[in-house]
Amino acid sequence: MQKDINQIISDLKKMHGTPRCELVFSNPLELVVATVLSAQATDQKVNEVTQPLFRKYRTWKDYLSVPVEELEEDIRPTGFYRNKAKSIRGIAGEIEGRFEGHIPEDVDTFATVKGIGRKSANLIVGLAFGKPAIVVDTHVIRVSRRIGLTGNKDPDKIEQDLRKGIPEAVWTDFSLLVTLHGRYVCKARKPECERCLMREICDYYKGGRKDV
């Protein structure tokens, strides 16, 4: 990886400010639920739904004891609400049963929970527990490939490439900043290259905007 990671992070901070997740949460449980709800939904819509949701449901047992139809109705605006309700209850049951109600702070362990996976496990462990984590979402895949940080398309291989080329201390900040960049500048269909501070070191831009 022949890129200056410190310069990339500096440029990303100039464009997007403090590294951050746009989901609103106050504890690890809330972040898990918000992450499930964020699939195929905007963070803004999820935050609208979770504001009353988190007042109503405070523990994993709350999610397990409520009739599933009631939970579905509470999360309906996020879309795919039946699948999401089933996933939340499955995660709640597994965390209660396997881990005595405590979310694992180890990515490899947490990723074994059905409905979580490595992307979500990294995000939650990185944000909720402050541990270094590479979060390979669709934005990180796209931006990392365009910049030239990886040539892979498989998320697990991309995670390994980024782990090797980026100092562990900035894994989480890098992931959050790249997600913001993919969301607001390096968009899938119409990337706004002219306002990107990284365009001179970007393989995509230098290659005539042909996906690499």
Rank of each mutant, 00 (worst) to 15 (best):
N122W: 07
S120G: 11
L176R: 09
R142I: 00
A169M: 09
T138Q: 03
I134N: 07
I147H: 11
N152F: 10
R146S: 10
P167N: 10
L127D: 06
T150Q: 14
G130V: 12
G148V: 15
T138C: 06
G148L: 12
G151D: 05
T138G: 07
D137G: 05
H139C: 08
K164T: 06
N122F: 10
V136E: 13
S175Q: 09
L177Q: 03
V135Y: 05
V135P: 00
V185R: 03
S175H: 07
A121K: 13
G151M: 03
H181C: 07
I134L: 14
L180C: 01
K131V: 05
G126H: 12
D173Y: 01
A128W: 10
V143W: 08
K119D: 04
V140Q: 13
A133L: 02
D161H: 09
L180F: 00
R183I: 12
A169T: 14
G126K: 04
I147P: 13
D137E: 11
R145M: 12
F129L: 04
P155I: 08
D156R: 08
R183Y: 00
R183E: 02
I158N: 10
P155D: 05
T138L: 05
V140W: 10
I166V: 13
V140A: 02
K157H: 06
V125K: 11
